[in-house]
Amino acid sequence: MRLVEQSKKKEDPDPKALACYGVLWQDGTPDDPAREEMWLRFVTGRPVSAISTQFLDWCCERLAAQGKRAWLLIWDNASWHISKIVRTWIRKHNQQVKQTGTGVRILPFRLPTQSPWLNPIEPKWVHGKRAIVEPDGLLSAQQLAERICSHFGCSSEPHLSLPEKAAS
């Protein structure tokens, strides 16, 4: 299948791209995991390091509110996951948690390259995409976000945004 990028018309309020950041939480035991709860955030544009750190910070705030102290984060080797900006942010974040004794430490675990089947969130993304796609037309960004949130049973949060100083 060939995808063609539509040219953006001036009166078109929809962004040319909408990215969805997500985390799949596991409860239960390693032998009997329950992987049902997802937290999602959308961003207008493509995923970049500055947005990744916002997403990580948002997750840590929510985890801290639940009384969690550490987060084992399993993710792939996408450039916005392994960038120097993200690695530095995680290191500084963890140092601050250690110094203050408050917050959630992030323990990143990177999967081997070209091994998406090892990441439990990947099948969720595949099934989600199939469930929300509109074969005969385009969805607006709002429709897309609503369908994704409805499919995964999570609340719609305000979109993340690229900081001005990182935009250039």
Score class of each variant (00 low, 15 high):
118 L>K: 14
72 L>K: 01
150 S>E: 14
137 G>Q: 09
131 A>T: 14
85 I>C: 03
151 H>D: 09
36 E>G: 06
99 Q>W: 08
90 I>L: 03
68 K>A: 03
98 K>D: 04
62 R>T: 09
85 I>A: 06
138 L>G: 05
130 R>Y: 10
109 F>T: 04
71 W>F: 14
122 E>I: 13
68 K>G: 00
70 A>T: 13
30 P>G: 01
138 L>D: 14
52 S>H: 05
117 W>Y: 14
95 Q>L: 05
40 L>I: 15
36 E>A: 08
61 E>W: 08
41 R>G: 01
73 L>A: 03
42 F>D: 05
87 R>T: 13
138 L>W: 05
148 I>W: 13
63 L>S: 02
65 A>E: 15
119 N>L: 03
56 L>S: 02
87 R>I: 07
143 Q>W: 13
111 L>D: 02
147 R>T: 09
82 I>F: 01
80 W>E: 02
82 I>L: 03
30 P>I: 04
38 M>S: 10
122 E>W: 04
75 W>D: 01
147 R>Q: 08
41 R>V: 06
132 I>Y: 02
135 P>E: 10
81 H>L: 03
83 S>R: 11
97 V>N: 04
34 A>G: 00
57 D>T: 14
107 L>I: 15
130 R>E: 14
92 K>A: 09
47 P>Q: 14
56 L>I: 15
35 R>V: 01
108 P>D: 01
131 A>R: 13
32 D>Q: 12
64 A>W: 06
142 Q>R: 11
86 V>F: 02
122 E>V: 12
73 L>K: 00
110 R>F: 15
74 I>D: 00
149 C>F: 12
57 D>W: 08
101 G>V: 10
55 F>K: 05
128 G>M: 15
121 I>E: 04
142 Q>V: 15
46 R>K: 14
138 L>E: 14
148 I>N: 00
56 L>W: 05
85 I>D: 02
109 F>D: 00
116 P>L: 04
133 V>A: 09
132 I>K: 06
128 G>K: 05
68 K>R: 15
125 W>R: 05
86 V>A: 02
87 R>Q: 10
50 A>K: 12
136 D>N: 11
63 L>V: 05
35 R>P: 00
110 R>Q: 11
90 I>C: 02
140 S>M: 11
77 N>V: 07
35 R>D: 00
151 H>M: 02
78 A>K: 07
79 S>Q: 10
60 C>Q: 09
74 I>S: 00
118 L>N: 07
55 F>Y: 12
133 V>F: 02
46 R>T: 14
75 W>I: 03
70 A>W: 06
121 I>M: 05
71 W>M: 01
97 V>I: 13
103 G>F: 12
137 G>Y: 07
54 Q>F: 05
94 N>W: 08
152 F>Y: 15
40 L>E: 01
48 V>L: 10
101 G>R: 12
67 G>I: 13
68 K>E: 07
144 L>R: 06
62 R>I: 07
117 W>C: 02
142 Q>I: 15
45 G>S: 09
129 K>I: 13
135 P>G: 09
